[in-house]
Design a protein around this nucleic acid. Structure first.
Lengths: 358, 358
DNA sequence: AGTGCAATTGACAGCGCTTTCATTTGAAAC
DNA sequence: GTTTCAAATGAAAGCGCTGTCAATTGCACT
């Protein structure tokens, strides 16, 4: 482990026999430097193993090339795709994404925003719309583009792309009800604001269809896991053996419910229908495959990133659409497919999508 | 969106009627400033919404409070736990973790290392030991602690914690062989160097026990998914119907294999035993629960972070152990449990663990 | 040679903060 | 009221880079 200082611009400049500015230019705008010098400088860079100090560069240029992204979880497969979509867009523009995982805590989110703003990101991309007043204040003061994603709000900080989780919850129940189910259970995690919205949608639908949800809802404050799905559904089954369908606030819980049915010899979908949420990859692979409410998580990440990019690197104009509703899609599969239906693959119930402008 | 400049240290200083240095101190070492001033300064900070510029601070102090972490994937549940463990350690020390996902590409890894070093991280934590020569060079030149994790090498860049995936692969096969299985298949992803090692261990064991692996190995260049596990195992089943066990290079593939068996009416474990790798959460929840080779991913992340912290913030001494083998544990569950065994929960086959010093 | 102009190159200041060292202040001790 | 010394505060320099503008160079054209 050599302890010698890392090479700086000046080091490269001396070695190449030019001034530091020229080195800076040779690196950032090669076309502005004569070929002769450029070559000498490239050699010096290589031989010294010079790597520009991003911090100094950011400080001097007021361009940090950093965008802050805050997610509530990584354990959940949802955010992988979402993050990947964001990174893909930014990596092409040489923008570094600073990701912070706040584990579904608004308090941690507030702290994370504070910390991230210390890096002077050129924009911030957030999940959800439930930031604290303090967080909103800090973000507004920062004077940078802010995108709230994966959920919708009437009062966005800046840009907003997402869907109504309440509507999605409603639609899931509506779908199950149309299949003839009456005793529709719901498994949900209360730590997640969006799951709460789905729960609200579930309840709204149950009420609307005159169905009772008594004893049919299992709620956990913990992070969702497959194991937990089994336990929660076991609770419901023990309480209300006549349950004939279950809508889960995410696919992990749904898979757990499926396993619990397998364990108990409950036939899916004949005895019981299951619908999950998010449409993660494994839904299509299980036996029977799990029906699930899919969201446009990749599109949402992409939109957020692309709009940010357009604002900070493009015309600087705000997009016309300041709010987009990406809707959702019910992917109907074997876990909820009535026997008489015989659709080959993954038929889709038309999206509930409606764009709103801001 | 206010476009006014963000407040600086000087702004706060003027507002509070003190010099900038004092503000700096009031923020970093409150005990060095008189109570009266500290209060005045705190008020000024609050009323201006001042957030220190981390970049300037890092540049001036030569402390970036940044640690770079490179992971090959986020889709895989393994890295969530691992990352969370790392973040937990560093967040207490107010160190920001800069994560880059390189999607199992050594080339991307090289680029990521270059980029991250531009932020002058105080340490780097990597996954695996297969960095390019160039990468190794850059890391060495950087003169910071480097930890290679999740795998072992005879020639570490600096610190190293992990396990022998070859040994783990061997042990999985050995275990299955001891259960009386002879026709042991293997599903594997060739994009991942550690999976390749497990594959090598599998092959080594098959050879050692005089078993033929002909037609029993299914290999994919793609990212593992449950769906893919089904497809790969389907291939094997179609080729070699007499297969009586399968060792999968990760749990996603194993779950897929289980589903494929369910689909085909193959009884697990009676007709066929399944063993996965990583022991993700869902393994214990499936029906039957999946046996899996568990690794100490959380411990590895924690060790890496703690040692880094000790070096950069503590005594500066290198730990005595420069290399640690965390071994692995075969979690024997229903998917491979012979009928006559009747152990209640998750019995463990003793760890293959042996620490080496460096 | 001399002029004009674009293409190259360099000097200098400063980004917002911390470090170091000098100065001031205040309180205790005589 | 001094003296003494620690505690509190401030002034100045500089981290490594970029932005701006000035200086130089090269070259075509008179």
């Amino acid at each position: 482990m050599t302890r010698k200082q890392r090479a700086t611009l000046s080091d490269v400049a001396s070695k190449a026999g030019v001034s530091p500015v020229t080195v800076s230019r040779a690196i950032r705008h090669p076309e502005m430097v004569s070929e002769k010098l450029r070559e000498r400088i490239d050699n010096a860079v290589r031989s010294l193993g010079y790597i520009p100090n991003h911090l100094a560069s950011a400080l001097a240029s007021h361009r940090t090339n950093i965008v802050g992204v805050i997610v509530p979880s990584l354990t959940n497969g949802v955010f992988d795709d979402y993050l990947a979509a964001i990174q893909d867009v930014f990596s092409l523009a040489n923008i570094q994404v600073l990701v912070t995982n706040v584990r579904y805590s608004a308090e941690k989110e507030e702290k994370a925003i504070n910390t991230l703003l210390g890096y002077h990101p050129e924009a911030m991309i957030l999940v959800g719309v439930d930031q604290t007043e303090n967080s909103r204040q800090m973000l507004t003061n920062a004077g940078i583009p802010v995108v709230q994603t994966l959920d919708l709000t009437d009062n966005p900080i800046d840009l907003n792309i997402g869907l109504s989780h309440d509507a999605a919850g409603f639609a899931a129940v509506e779908y199950l009800h149309k299949q003839g189910h009456e005793s529709i259970a719901h498994l949900t995690a209360r730590g997640d604001p969006r799951s709460q919205q789905r729960h609200a949608g579930y309840q709204r639908a149950m009420d609307a269809f005159g169905l009772s949800s008594k004893g049919l809802v299992a709620l956990t404050p913990r992070i969702s896991t497959v194991q937990l799905g089994r336990r929660l559904f076991a609770e419901v089954l023990d309480r209300q053996p006549k349950v004939d369908a279950v809508f889960c606030c995410n696919d992990d819980l749904a898979l757990g419910a499926l396993f619990e049915c397998q364990q108990r010899g409950i036939r899916v979908p004949e005895d019981l229908a299951i619908v999950g949420f998010n449409d993660l990859e494994f839904c299509a692979a299980s036996v029977p495959p799990l029906s699930s409410v899919g969201t446009e998580r990749i599109q949402m990440g992409k939109w957020a990133a692309q709009n940010v990019l357009e604002i900070i690197r493009g015309s600087g104009q705000r997009p016309e659409m300041r709010q987009v509703n990406t809707g959702f899609t019910i992917h109907e599969r074997g876990s909820s497919m009535p026997a008489h239906k015989n659709v080959p693959d993954t038929p889709e119930i038309p999206k509930n999508k409606a764009s709103a402008t801001g």
